[in-house]
Each structure stands twice: as structure tokens, then as C-alpha cells.
């Protein structure tokens, strides 16, 4: 029993179809409970008022936006090394989700920033690097769409993903260097905060648990969406193959 068994498209589809209803339900429940809990059953922040509650959408989408790119990098590598089609299709399926997550993070961030910082947008390093990440997603998706031959498209986008990852990381450090920011640093999972030496800049426990639930929910939703979309891609390709075969026989 190894994970590579699921590289077989048929096995992938049958397994994911069994898992998908559970995933959808779990995602819906955790996002639903997390949002309701967060919106209605936690108090307002003493300085930010109720605007703090946008954190339940902003943080999970931002975390996913970055990690989806990492997932695409991993699946691209698997495609380049082991030539499993499911892997390439999963990267393709994940890209639009990542782009939307980046957009959600940018939009909720702007809505949050307006009352808190008094501006919709500043050229803060974090904001800027998210905008850059959005451009990377855009280019990646456009390249997938532009190439007709599916294997060539998978190869080229994989290489773009590899090279792009390096340059995205470089851009992150470049914009950090280029401008000082308004955005706070990492304040959910930080070594100092976890061991308790630093209690200053940490998300309060009241907000922490519903936020965790929302993050889990977003991850589940992403996994479900990727399974679903990959299944769709596999089917679309199968249909194409069947139609080609029919044309040959006719």
C-alpha cells in the first residue's frame, strides 16, 4: 500500500468519490461553526471593535494562498520526476483556487485596513508580496490555458512553477527590503508566543479557537475542491480520448 497507487486515475476517482461527501460536510460544518462562533459568540476587540472579526476570513485565505502555491510546487515536482498525470492535473486544478484565495485575502485585507489603518491600500511588504503572488498565479493559469498539447502544457507550467517559486521567494525578500510596513508580523504561531515568553503580540484565545476552526475548514474545503476539480479534469480528458477513438473508428 503506497501513496503512488492513487496516481492511477481510476483509483483516484473512485477513492476521492468515496471521501468527497465526508470532506464537503466536514468543511461546511467547520467553516459554518467557526464563522458563527467567531461572528456572534466572541466579544469585540477593545480597540478594533467588531472589525476584528474579518480575521476569520482573512487569515485562513491568506495561509491557503501561500500554501496552495507550495502544493503546486510539490505536485509539479512529482509530475516532472514520476510522470503521474493526476499530479499535473492536481496542480492545474489548484491554481485557480489559489488565485481566488489570494484575491479574498487582498480584498478582506483592504476592507479591514480601511477602518484600522485609514487606507484601503499601502505598499506594505506583505500586501505587495501578495499582489505579486497574484501575478504569479495569473501567469501560471494563462500558460496552462494557452498551450494545447496537455503533456507539453504540464511540463512547461511545472518549470514555470519551479522557477517562479524561486523568484517569488526573492520578491518577498526584495519588497521586505524595499519598504517598511504597517502589517503586523506573524502572531498566531510563533515560538516566543507559544512558550509564553512573549505575550504581547499574540492573538487572544477567545479569537484563537474559532480561528483555528475556520483555518481547518478552509483547508478541508480546498482539499475537497482539488479532488473534485482533478476528477473533472480526468473525466474531461477521458471524454476527449473517447471522442478521438470514435472518430478513428468511424
Amino acid at each position: 500500500m503506497s501513496i503512488w497507487e492513487y496516481a492511477n486515475p481510476k483509483k483516484f476517482i473512485t477513492t476521492t468519490e468515496r471521501v468527497l461527501p465526508v470532506l464537503w460536510a466536514a468543511a461546511a460544518i467547520s467553516i459554518g461553526v467557526g464563522l458563527v462562533w467567531g461572528f456572534f459568540f466572541t466579544g469585540d476587540d477593545y480597540r478594533q471593535g467588531s472589525t476584528v472579526k474579518i480575521i476569520y476570513l482573512h487569515v485562513p485565505s491568506a495561509m491557503l494562498a501561500i500554501n496552495i502555491w507550495v502544493m503546486m510546487l510539490a505536485t509539479s515536482l512529482v509530475w516532472l520526476v514520476r510522470r503521474h498525470h493526476v499530479s499535473a492535473l492536481a496542480a492545474r486544478a489548484a491554481a485557480p483556487i489559489g488565485m481566488i484565495m489570494t484575491l479574498i485575502a487582498l480584498a478582506t485585507g483592504a476592507i479591514w485596513g480601511q477602518p484600522m489603518w485609514g487606507t484601503w491600500w499601502v505598499w506594505d511588504p506583505r500586501l505587495t508580496s501578495f499582489l505579486i503572488l497574484f501575478l504569479f498565479y495569473l501567469g501560471y493559469i494563462a500558460l496552462w490555458e494557452a498551450i494545447e498539447d496537455p503533456d507539453t502544457a504540464a511540463d512547461l507550467t511545472s518549470f514555470l512553477c519551479l522557477v517562479g517559486s524561486v523568484f517569488a521567494l526573492l520578491s518577498r525578500y526584495a519588497v521586505n527590503f524595499w519598504n517598511q510596513g504597517l502589517h503586523q508580523g506573524a502572531s498566531i504561531m510563533r515560538a516566543e508566543a507559544v512558550i509564553g515568553t512573549d505575550t504581547e503580540e499574540k492573538v487572544s484565545n477567545i479569537f484563537f479557537y474559532p480561528l483555528m476552526l475556520c483555518i481547518v475548514g478552509f483547508v478541508l474545503l480546498f482539499v475537497a475542491l482539488v479532488f473534485y476539480r482533478t476528477g473533472t479534469e480526468i473525466r474531461a480528458r477521458r471524454i476527449k480520448a473517447l471522442m478521438a477513438r470514435e472518430r478513428v473508428e468511424a
Partner: peptide, 23 residues
Amino acid sequence: GLKRGGLLMSLLVMPLYLPTLIF
């Protein structure tokens, strides 16, 4: 290999240019 790849190439190359441009 693309017909009319010019615009797409700009879209792909621009983000890769960013670190060089910034520094």
C-alpha cells in the same frame, strides 16, 4: 511554440523581473 505569445510572455516575465527591478 505559441502563436501570438507576446502578451502572454510579458505576463510571465514581468513577475520574474520584479526582484531585479526592485534591487
